[in-house]
């Protein structure tokens, strides 16, 4: 806080002249209690106004003081005052002393010490209530924020998971694209033999390098005892091109064996580990190179 700026802002002058809002008033009082230099300036300004007021002094009519001495209450305030403050109330009570009924006149009771205690208790009790309400308010606020926090955490987790899946898919797509971009790559759709569903797998075969990549589109996962086996039909004979698993995230499988020549590709379902000759009855898909 730059006290010099604060002093020069003019707020202290407004305070001294009494034109500040209640909030600004509290602010000035707070600031002046913290910063001695602000307090100093405030006192100097107040003193200047006081001097101005002194310049206007006029003697008031003398009877005002007498009136005040009669009207005002002297002696220590509150409970201790009972004895000493008696003379003054008595002046006004003389006519009332004969009337014993006092219930309606609550003003007089206020001079008793008991209501002071009652007031103290009332104040204490209402303060307690206020604190209680405030605590409850804070508690419900806390609960609200905790709920928000946990729901945020959940949605954050869901988003992270989604990002992970998307990233995996993206890398698969990149892989496929890279294969496709390679010159000489041919795309062979493997169509289902029973013509029920379409496009179960795709072969990317590069005739010049012999590289065979297999993309699993929608092959069903086989039982643990079985495995899919890829075959290349070379000169009318099926040649083993390796077994593969259908995983959760792997879509593109690069086969180790290379074929520089092939007429068609087929996938059969075989025992785990593969089979030297294809079981034609379990052939799932087939695709001709020329097609």
């Amino acid at each position: 806080m730059n006290t010099k700026e604060y002093i020069e802002s003019g707020i202290l002058e407004e305070y001294v002249l009494g034109t500040v809002s209640p909030q600004e008033k509290r602010e000035v009082e707070c600031m002046s209690s913290i910063y001695p230099e602000i307090r100093q300036e405030l006192d100097t300004l107040s003193a200047a106004v006081e001097q101005y007021a002194q310049a206007l002094r006029r003697d008031p009519p003398t009877d005002i003081k007498e009136w005040l001495l009669k009207e005002l209450e002297f002696g220590p305030p509150e409970a201790e005052a009972v004895e000493e403050s008696n003379p003054t109330p008595l002046l006004t009570n003389e006519e009332n002393t004969e009337t014993p009924i006092r219930t309606l006149n609550s003003r007089e009771d206020a001079f008793d010490s008991r209501p002071t205690f009652r007031v103290t208790w009332l104040v204490a009790a209402s303060l307690g209530l206020v604190v209680l309400f405030f605590a409850y308010f804070l508690y419900s606020q806390l609960q609200g924020s905790q709920q928000t926090l946990s729901s945020l955490r959940n949605s954050n987790e869901a988003l992270t998971e989604e990002v992970r899946v998307l990233r995996a898919q993206q890398s698969q797509a990149d892989q496929t694209l890279a294969i496709l971009k390679e010159p000489g790559t041919r795309v062979i759709r493997l169509n289902p033999t029973d013509t029920t569903t379409a496009n179960l797998a795709t072969i990317y075969w590069n005739a010049s390098t012999g590289q065979v990549n297999l993309e699993i589109d929608s092959l069903v996962r086989p039982p643990e005892t079985q495995q899919y086996q890829l075959w290349a039909i070379v000169d009318g004979k099926p040649v083993d091109a390796g077994v593969f698993d259908v995983g959760d995230n792997t879509r593109v499988v690069q086969q180790a064996k290379k074929f520089l020549k092939a007429d068609a590709f087929a996938i059969t379902l075989e025992r785990r580990g593969g089979s030297p000759t294809p079981t034609l009855s379990t052939m799932v898909v087939v695709g001709n190179v020329t097609s």
Partner: peptide, 11 residues
């Protein structure tokens, strides 16, 4: 203080 207060009030 009453003279100064009175002067201010009168003003």
């Amino acid at each position: 203080y009453s003279p100064a207060l009175y002067g201010v009030i009168l003003k």
